[in-house]
């Protein structure tokens, strides 16, 4: 698979850009977190495309963002469970 570049992205419509980024990010995220990969990828796709391109090239950046997403999700699920328990 050839690397995704800014010019490739720029030539695509916005919705398509996110999809292209998602296709690249998903397998990387799936390797870190197989069960939450679809959700985490969706969350990360709300970030600017330029930042996502950087993450594709930097496993460290991606890893820390995935950790952040997992923490946000866990807090969210805990809150939901607490609401239901009331």
């Amino acid at each position: 698979q050839e690397p995704l570049t800014v010019s490739m992205l720029a030539s695509a419509p916005l919705q398509e850009q996110k999809h292209m980024l998602g296709e690249r990010l998903f397998p990387l995220i799936e390797a870190i977190h197989p069960t939450l990969a679809a959700k985490i990828t969706g969350m990360l796709l709300e970030i600017d495309a330029s930042e996502l391109l950087h993450m594709l090239e930097s496993p460290e950046s991606l890893g820390s963002k995935v950790d952040e997403a997992v923490a946000v999700l866990q807090a969210h699920y805990a809150e939901e469970a607490a609401q239901k328990a009331k």
């Binding site: 296709e23 998903f26 709300e46 952040e68 999700l73 699920y77």
Partner: peptide
Amino acid sequence: KKSTLNPNAKEFNPAKSLLAVNK
């Protein structure tokens, strides 16, 4: 610090064609 990530974001589903290739 507060994260800007949205836990209610829509899930991303990779293309079915990719899944087929991986089978």
